[in-house]
Nucleic acid binder design. Structure first.
Lengths: 192, 192
DNA sequence: GTCTATACGGTGATAGAC
DNA sequence: GTCTATCACCGTATAGAC
């Protein structure tokens, strides 16, 4: 797989996360990824929409993989999820981060205007939720509970990302991580 | 207060909710609000940013007022919040809605590029949270719990809005509403 | 595969008449 | 207060040389 192509996709995913779809121009992508101008339409003949769709799917797979690795640190699903969320919160707080809320901006901007990008975002949110759901299932949460809880965690975390970015503070992420932990504990299946 | 001016602000708030900041052009605002082209820079001499800031604050006050009215229907805060969220979910499902997630798109797009709009969004999120917090306080939740819970509800609901828009289904909103109810019940202060 | 040049539409914003 | 005309700029996308 071409390095140039991969560089374009990765840089695009970062810019989309930070600025959203419409604020991210192809000129900026070419400039900041330091790739040849002529390569863009060579690798992505359908233009910006095709590139954005691929960047979103790339971003989603990266996050899903990272989440699975992170959750493997604890056998107990509640502890695993709690520590995973706290680690993400501190990573955001440290500033070494594209922004948090990896695809929310694109999802909101394009849900009504591009079926292709909407579908990519839907796949991405499933990719975010699945590692959580699997971990809860492995910890003996019933299937329906695991689904509803994983969906709720995904929603609460995405919302907390928005609040933290808006307030320029990791505090909302930290608070929501605590509340999620409390909630999961209150509904944990009895150990046997 | 001038009707023309108010029409511009209201239409802008709808378009920002549906499309975000960069996808919403001044031409579209003028056209769809059916206001005179010359009025825009007459009422908003600082241009698009000033108009957007006012639209966000208008939207926030509207939602806060609606939330307070809606929460007044039940004395018990858990029941009040639950029924309020369900009503919003069905309103979104009905389609008579600008989109849900009133300011999330703008918040994400502008958090890193416009201090003014970031500040407006921060105020808006406080306006969303306060009615919930007040209701919980009135129901004898301790102050710190009321704050953390109201913040978490705000985050989870904003995230659920994004998921529902992306999936084109009110199901995420309904599920998250149920989970929030369960969570609040598990942590309710003992009645006396 | 990559480059340069360019077409063409739309953007926010301004000037000046009325 | 409102209208029209116009500005300079930037967006995506394309054509054709190399």
């Amino acid at each position: 797989m071409s390095t140039t192509r991969q560089q374009i996709v990765e840089k695009t995913s970062i810019l989309l996360e930070r600025q959203g779809y419409h604020a991210t121009g192809l000129n900026q992508i070419v400039a900041e990824s330091e790739t040849p101008r002529g390569s863009l339409y060579h690798y992505f003949p359908q233009g910006k929409e095709e590139l954005a769709a691929e960047a979103i799917e790339f971003n989603a797979q990266q996050i899903a993989a990272h989440t699975r690795r992170s959750l493997a640190a604890y056998a107990d699903p509640v502890a695993a999820i709690y520590h995973h969320l706290l680690a993400v919160a501190e990573h955001v707080a440290s500033g070494n981060c594209s922004g948090g809320a990896p695809i929310a901006a694109v999802a909101l901007e394009t849900a009504n205007s591009s079926e292709r990008l909407r579908a990519s975002c839907q796949l991405a949110y499933e990719a975010f939720r699945l590692p959580l759901e699997e971990k809860l299932l492995a910890g003996n949460f019933p299937a329906e509970r695991a689904y509803a809880l994983a969906l709720t965690i995904t929603a609460a975390w995405e919302g907390a990302m928005i609040l933290s970015r808006t307030e320029r503070s990791a505090q909302p992420l930290r608070i929501v991580a605590e509340e999620i932990r409390t909630f999961l504990l209150s509904g944990s299946p009895a150990p046997h």
